[in-house]
Design a binder for these strands. Structure first.
Length: 671
DNA sequence: ATAGTGGTAGTTTTT
DNA sequence: CTACCACTAT
């Protein structure tokens, strides 16, 4: 306190939300941002839509806007940032932290699902949801559907009844696209329309089962949040006033349901900024549509529109290729990406005579690049679907190139991990039908029938363990053992999750050894799971995090060594969203694989594949290699694939440098 | 009713 | 390849 004020009395003027304290901004925003970015950063109130092309500094813009809001005196805890993964949120907020300090830690950030989880645990009671609800992942969902299918006697319907996977997909899509199940089945799944009554019945059973057992699937998180916001005026007001500034990243990959959630959250203030690029919308299978971007101004009248069109990521030749690929798309928001950078070599289009030749090319080229001084973690191999890399993975191992694979099968989805977790989940939520079923089936002498019988008993009582103990017959002893173990462990439900897991492990180990020949590998996975659990002191948080944000490394990497060393990245294009590398390889660019034969049926699917390629290409900063093998037999069509992806058809030859790969000893024939 | 075997169809992408 | 289904022997 300086001396002038020593004798004067202080009278505090309270700050109101609408009159932020006079800005004393520490950052020079105009210097750090281009004109377009600056305009988007400087808007404070009201709805805003930012169309941000690939590599146009979209993240930077969001980061600076959050920083500026805080610098303007807005309470950080009133800011809500939606991102596509939780990691993305953490990275952004840590960048904000670097700019303006630790206030950023109080910003709420995460995926729609994780935020919904947070709010539902807090306010869910208002819509009859117990805070201890269990979240079902996709596998759990399918298990539950199958279980109910058995109960309803729909197992003998005949061969053409949809599989659990398809059923789950139908249910989910109807929710996320806001379409009725009838409508969806009759149009998108018309080959199953004969079964519509059964499907509807099963769906009803699925809904009630979840309701009764406090089970919540991924979609329910969003549905229930919408319900919470819609039904209860005071809760809506409360939540909306808590989060007075909302930012949404990757808006092109949100679905209509998520748009409604945003609408509800912003009910009292309309302070929403969404950022996205319609050309990068690649999650239609999850109900996402780039039309969400188009519709945003209608949902929020008075929306201000900003466009970021200057690309800072890629060299000009790479950008030109990307522009050519997307130019052929029939429908898109008008924007033209440009760069001021000069130079850069044209992308390479490499033809290999077989899948293996392609793998060898990639491995060899990567070794060369490393010789040139490019670190491995600045290189990525991207692909359409995760099984496209099987051969490459072998080749990389042979060449001693360490790599990490992102996307594809997940560690938490493996049977043994699910088994172990099921025990803990039963303890946590005794109504969890799905986990009960799983746990029961692992008992010697228990099959589907007995599991179902025991299950009905278990769910109707407060003392489920006694029900297990009362069973006689072949499975009696096994069920008693199970009951004893669960009872003992559940005494200390409040103990750290890692301890609970260790206890359960003692029981489960013999079962594991009995079930799987490769149990040593699986034991290591489970040990890893326990290590992950050590970071938590609450069981429900551990379980929720595991389903909402499963570790995105695939199984083998979890236990792999040299975690600290730099490693090559293998990634599905979907998992590569928002990332960038100095050098990028895109493999399997053969027509029929990418785009896959699958997508030939409808134009929408095909266009999504085009955008997918666009996303892949725009990940590259300096060097881009497009690879395609020829002479690939395609089982689906019965034909041989040898033509490069159709998306490259109209690309001028000058934009690509074509290479033909030949064997060393054959090379002189070509000279 | 369950466990084990053998055959076959169907294979993205993720919260 | 593998997950799922049907069938068979307990």
């Amino acid at each position: 306190m300086d001396s002038l004020n020593q004798h004067s009395k202080l009278y505090i003027l309270k700050r109101s939300h609408h009159t932020p304290r006079p800005a004393r901004l520490s950052l020079n925003y105009a210097e750090a941002l281009n004109a377009q970015q600056l305009a988007a950063v400087e808007i404070v109130d009201g709805p805003a839509l930012v169309i941000a092309g690939a590599g146009s500094g979209k993240t930077r813009t969001l980061v600076y806007r959050v920083a500026r809001l805080i610098e303007l005196g807005i309470d950080p805890s009133a800011i809500l940032l939606f991102t596509f993964t939780r990691k993305a949120a953490q990275e952004m907020l840590s960048r904000v932290g670097q700019l303006i300090g630790p206030a950023s830690e109080r910003v709420t950030g995460g995926t729609f699902h994780s935020v919904a989880n947070l709010l539902l645990r807090r306010y869910g009671r208002a819509i009859g949801l117990d805070p201890g609800f269990t979240i079902l992942d996709r596998g759990d969902t399918e298990d539950l559907i199958n279980l109910l299918r058995g109960q309803l006697g729909l197992n003998e319907t005949g061969k053409r009844f949809p599989r659990k996977h398809t059923l789950a997909e139908m249910f989910s899509k109807s929710v996320n696209t806001l379409r009725s199940l009838d409508d969806l089945v009759l149009t998108q799944y018309s080959h199953f329309s004969d079964y519509l009554p059964e499907i509807t019945k099963l769906h009803q059973a699925y809904l009630t089962a979840k309701q009764q057992r406090q089970l919540v699937d991924y979609d329910d998180l969003l549905v229930k949040l919408r319900e919470l916001l819609g039904k209860d005026e005071s809760v809506r007001h409360n939540i909306s006033q808590t989060y007075r500034y909302i930012l949404v990243d990757e808006y092109q990959d949100t679905n209509p349901l998520q748009a409604q959630v945003i609408r509800g959250l912003a009910a009292t203030h309309d302070n929403v900024m969404v950022v996205g690029d319609d050309s990068q919308s690649i999650y239609a299978f999850r109900g996402a549509t780039f039309r969400n971007i188009m519709d945003f101004p209608r949902l929020f009248p008075g929306t201000k529109l900003y466009k970021l069109e200057e690309n800072y990521r890629s060299t000009r030749p790479i950008l030109e290729l990307a522009n050519h690929i997307i130019a052929a798309a029939p429908e898109k928001y008008s924007k033209t990406l440009f760069t001021r950078s000069q130079g850069g070599s044209p992308p390479t289009l490499a033809q290999a005579v077989s899948e293996h030749a392609q793998s060898r090319f990639v491995a060899q080229k990567i070794l060369e690049l490393r010789e040139e001084g490019i670190p491995l973690d600045e290189i990525a191999v991207l692909f359409r679907s995760s099984f496209h890399t099987f051969d490459l993975e072998l080749e990389l191992s042979r060449c001693n190139i360490p790599f990490i694979k992102r996307g594809g099968f997940k560690f938490v989805e493996t049977a043994h991990v699910k088994d172990l977790l099921a025990y803990v989940r039963v303890i946590h939520n005794p109504h969890d039908t799905v986990s009960w079923n799983r746990v029961l089936l692992l008992v010697e002498g228990v099959g589907p029938k007995r599991a179902r019988d025991v299950l009905t008993g278990v769910l109707d009582t407060d003392r489920p363990f006694d029900v297990l103990k009362a069973v006689t017959g072949r499975a009696g002893q096994g069920l008693r053992d199970l009951a004893t173990m669960l009872e003992r462990v559940s005494q200390g439900e409040t103990r750290p999750p890692a301890e609970l897991l260790a206890d359960v492990m003692d029981y489960y180990l013999p079962i594991l050894k009995d079930h799987y020949d490769d149990y040593p590998k699986r034991i290591r996975d489970l040990e890893h799971l326990t290590i992950m659990a050590e970071r938590y002191d609450r069981l429900d948080e551990f379980l929720a995090d595991l389903t909402l944000e499963p570790p995105d490394e695939s199984v083998m990497d979890v236990t792999g060594q040299d975690r600290d060393d730099e490693r090559l990245v293998l990634s599905t294009i979907h998992s590569a969203k928002g990332l960038e590398w100095r050098c990028v390889f895109i493999i399997w660019l053969v027509d029929g694989r990418f785009p896959s034969t699958y997508s030939f049926l409808t134009e929408e699917d095909l266009e999504e594949e085009r955008r997918l390629l666009y996303v892949a290409v725009t990940r590259a900063k300096q060097k881009l290699f497009l690879c395609y093998p020829i002479n690939i037999y395609d089982k689906i069509t019965g034909s041989v694939l040898s033509k490069p992806s159709r998306f490259l058809d109209h690309v001028p030859p000058t934009l690509l440098e074509s290479w033909t790969l030949v064997e060393e000893d054959e090379a002189y024939h070509w000279r």
